[in-house]
Design a binder for these strands. Structure first.
Lengths: 298, 298
DNA sequence: TTGTAAGCGTTATCAA
DNA sequence: TTGATAACGCTTACAA
């Protein structure tokens, strides 16, 4: 032991990988780290994985092409599993994951396939809650600001929101549907254009907080509608900026801590059922964080 | 080949690691992903490493204890090198890195040691530039909002700023020095307290953008000073939020793209001089991005 | 050109 | 309890 210490000997884990076929490495596939929500999710996930004795092999993905080659590489390193928080995904992505023959845990995304498990926020339910808030606050001219069409979570939020609005269609004007790309700027632009067209919304539900921040800045700079007195704004993700005094944005918190815990449970289960496709879905209720952007004294 | 395709065969890279001793994996040690600057730096770094054919073994570190055990694990996986963007670091951290006997590239941090190379922003020079802007804009009551004492980059910015102010000490009131911890809230609190004490600063240089956003919100909410007419504000990092309409913050861009390019150069050099300590330092000039928070018509 | 064998650093198994 | 040996899946060097 003394000799080992002086020589700076470190046991080599590589041979063990060859023997057991388990590398104790997990591929983590991410994209869009510029959204603080994903950055924070990655941080929590990395902590949880380290505590479980697993290494994080990080793969940054911007398009489907890099994903394919990245997955090939992950497979070559004999990773035990893949965790991904890719929001935007087609069925071809799901197919690429399934071909790995390795457990895949989808974090807040919604791929389906034999090896794929999912932990997701209750997007539909949150959409319903948003609609109920609009009802309670007496909103008449509602606006829905969607994320990219490929974002399944955004679609589910829209469904819950629209279905509930329609049940009370006598109390609402026709819903205005806008589309953004989940960035601040797209939220800003969408609302500026809307106001320039002369629309006077009194309730805006944004598919995520980044766009909602853009919405709030657009309201301040274009037109004369004031939040929350003339128009209330609701976001999703509860990013740190939502709590900044300049925004004070009501938002749905996805409770990433719970989601990570559940993801780790799924991961452990999947790792135990070795070489067999493992597929489960778990849903976490988002938690409404009420702030100034919906606080009106009407 | 046909058989390989049907059976889903993937070459195994693990034996190659044993033979060559090179894993083509690079340990990336990060912390504080809640700061968008670090999230974006990580994203760019991950892309560059993948393009260089290197895998990213991610290590999330919150304290020195996890660092030690994490480095042990990295060593066991026979990583080729370490890249870190840890902002806060003592000499004991540098020692832990050096013990790895593996090339370490410090990204915007400043550890010293035989195996350690560094690429850093020209913090001192940016501090000078900030002081010159204050001079030009006729600032009389300057404020410096520092980051954590352990943050070497923040100290260097302070040095450049203070040295230049002192050279023109006849034109400035005594510099007020505040301390934050690089978070939004600490910037907000620092300025609220300052204004409550009755101070009337007319120029605030914040060690990073997160705190500067807090500063801007504090100015809006506490006291009657307006930015930029009564007080100008300067940040560092040029995070996306600095460009948001609600902040419109003048900031120094560290040009992470250039820094990543240089870091990759250093990495390649270090990987070629195998088994020999490699140590170099490169500095990148930060670029001033002028926005509304310093645009005054005085 | 094709084929065989050694070796990488561990773990695990079986024999002494 | 201890010690020798096979095995993991490739690469490489050398022999046929």
């Amino acid at each position: 032991m003394a000799a080992a210490a002086t020589l700076g000997y470190r046991p080599n884990r590589i041979p063990g990988i060859m023997l057991s076929g388990r590398s104790h490495m997990v591929g983590v596939v991410i994209g869009g780290l510029d959204n603080p929500f994903y950055a924070s999710a990655l941080e929590r996930l990395a902590i949880a994985l380290r505590q479980a004795g697993l290494q994080v092999l990080l793969v940054q993905v911007d398009d489907a092409l890099t994903l394919d080659s990245a997955l090939d590489q992950l497979a070559s390193y004999r990773i035990d599993a893949v965790v991904t928080s890719l929001a935007v995904g087609s069925q071809s992505v799901a197919h690429a994951f399934s071909e790995l023959q390795t457990p895949v845990i989808c974090f807040n995304s919604s791929f389906v396939g034999p090896w794929i498990s999912t932990v997701t926020s209750n997007n539909y339910g949150a959409g319903q809650t948003a609609a109920e808030i609009f009802l309670k606050q007496g909103v008449i001219h509602p606006v829905w600001l969607a994320g990219p069409a490929k974002n399944a979570a955004s679609r589910a939020r829209a469904d819950g929101f629209c279905d509930t609005l329609e049940k009370a269609s006598d109390r609402f004007d026709k819903l205005i549907r806008l589309r953004g790309d989940d960035t601040y700027q797209s939220g800003y632009n969408a609302i500026c254009r809307l106001l320039q067209r002369g629309a006077r919304p009194d309730g805006i539900f944004s598919s995520n907080d980044m766009m909602a921040c853009g919405v709030l800045d657009a309201l301040r700079e274009c037109g004369d509608l004031r939040c929350p007195n003339d128009v209330i704004v609701l976001g999703y993700d509860n990013i740190p900026q939502a709590a900044w005094h300049g925004y004070d944005l009501t938002s749905f918190d996805q409770r990433t801590d719970q989601m990570v815990t559940v993801a780790m449970d799924l991961l452990n289960e999947a790792l135990q059922t070795v070489d067999h496709p493992f597929s489960q879905t778990r849903t976490i209720n988002a938690q409404l964080i009420e702030r100034g952007s919906t606080r009106t004294s009407k």
